[in-house]
C-alpha cells in the first residue's frame, strides 16, 4: 500500500516516535497568522474605493460603474451592449434575483454557450485588496458562466465587499462550513503572458470584465 509506505517514510524522516499531536499542530498553524496585518500590503481609502482602484488598475484591467440598486442592472447592460455594438442576445445566470429583473428589449437565455458573446452574473462577494470577484458554484451559479463568454458583466453588492483575502477565508471556510464545489476568485479579464512575457487579454476566458456595483 503506497499510502502506508508514504506516511511511514514521512514519519521516519521526521523522527516521529509518537503520533502527531493534532491540537498542538492546529494551534501552531493558527499562531502563524495571528500577527496584526502580518505580511499584508498597504491600504488607502474606503473599502469601495480600494476595490475600484484595484479592479481598474492596468494590471487587472476591469471596468466599473456604480448604480443605486440591482434593478438598475438591465439599464447598465443595455448601455454596455450599445456602446460596444453587441447583439441584444445575452446569457443571464439562472439566479432568481437576476432572472426577476426587467430585461425587456434584450433576448436572454439562462445557459451559457461555448461561443457566448456576453453573460451577466451576480458575484457572491468581492475582495477589495485585490479587486477580485468571488463566485460559488451552485445550481443557480454554473461555473462556466465565468469562463465561456467573451464579455463578462458582473453585478456586485457593495455590502458584500471584504477587506482582505483572509477575510474571505474566515467568512466562508470556517470549520464545519460546507464548501461549494468550486470557489472561483476572479481578478480581471483572462490574460496570458506566455508569448515573450507580454500581457495579452482574452486568452481562453473572457476578454472583457465589467463590474456593476450596487447598494451602498
Amino acid at each position: 500500500m503506497s499510502r502506508e509506505r508514504i506516511l511511514a517514510a514521512a514519519r521516519a524522516a521526521l523522527g516521529r516516535t509518537a503520533p502527531p499531536d493534532a491540537a498542538a499542530i492546529r494551534a501552531e498553524a493558527a499562531t502563524l497568522l495571528a500577527g496584526p496585518d502580518r505580511g499584508r500590503p498597504p491600504r488607502t481609502g474606503t473599502l469601495t474605493e480600494r476595490f475600484i482602484e484595484r479592479l481598474t488598475h492596468p494590471k487587472v484591467g476591469g471596468t466599473v460603474e456604480q448604480v443605486a440598486m440591482l434593478t438598475d442592472l438591465p439599464r447598465a447592460v443595455r448601455a454596455y451592449l450599445s456602446t460596444n455594438a453587441l447583439p441584444a442576445r445575452i446569457a443571464v445566470q439562472p439566479e432568481p434575483r437576476l432572472q426577476a429583473l426587467d430585461w425587456s428589449g434584450i433576448a436572454t437565455h439562462d445557459g451559457v454557450a461555448t461561443d457566448e458573446i456576453l453573460a451577466v452574473a451576480l458575484a457572491d462577494c468581492g475582495i477589495a485588496e485585490s479587486g477580485s470577484l468571488v463566485f460559488h458554484s451552485a445550481p443557480t451559479s454554473p461555473t462556466l458562466f465565468s469562463f465561456l463568454p467573451l464579455h463578462h458583466i458582473v453585478a456586485l453588492d457593495t455590502s458584500k465587499l471584504l477587506e482582505w483575502l483572509e477575510d474571505y477565508a474566515t467568512a466562508y471556510t470556517a470549520a464545519g462550513q460546507a464548501q461549494p464545489r468550486n470557489v472561483n476568485i476572479i481578478t480581471g479579464a483572462s490574460g496570458t503572458t506566455d508569448i515573450e512575457g507580454r500581457l495579452v487579454r482574452g486568452a481562453h476566458g473572457p476578454g472583457f470584465l465589467h463590474v456593476v456595483l450596487f447598494g451602498g
Binding site: 500590503p41 464548501q179 468550486n182 472561483n184 476568485i185 476572479i186 481578478t187 483572462s190 476566458g205
Partner: peptide
C-alpha cells in the same frame, strides 16, 4: 501581479 486572474478552490 497581485493576484492571478483565476484562483479556484
Amino acid at each position: 501581479a497581485e493576484l492571478t486572474q483565476y484562483t479556484t478552490f
